[in-house]
């Protein structure tokens, strides 16, 4: 997956997790939590969806990397480079 494809995938997951939110103007560099309503259970949903969709295991210590779109894509880039979109 390219970075653009990873971003598209994350947006798709976020839309499912936060179906009431409008993600159109989500800023890449700003924390998800500062832009949409997400709690710790929602973050676990992101982790679970990545595991289910792509068999990616994210260690608990790395959850902090999922703070914003920018940090999430940067973190996932090496893990998803071989994933076919």
């Amino acid at each position: 997956m390219t970075n653009a494809e990873i971003k598209k995938e994350i947006l798709d997951i976020l839309q499912a997790i936060a179906p009431d939110e409008d993600l159109t103007n989500l800023k890449d560099e700003v924390s998800f939590r500062d832009q949409i309503e997400l709690d710790s259970m929602d973050f676990l949903d992101i982790v679970m969806e990545l595991r289910k969709r792509h068999r990616i295991q994210i260690p608990e210590d790395d959850y902090i990397q999922l703070d914003s779109m920018q940090s999430t894509v940067a973190y996932l880039e090496p893990l998803m480079k071989d994933v076919v979109a």
Binding site: M41, L44, D45, M48, R51, K52, Q57
Partner: peptide, 12 residues
């Protein structure tokens, strides 16, 4: 669907 791997069991 995940061969009963409980790491896919929901936190919900």
């Amino acid at each position: 669907g995940y061969d009963y791997d409980t790491s896919f069991w929901s936190h919900h």
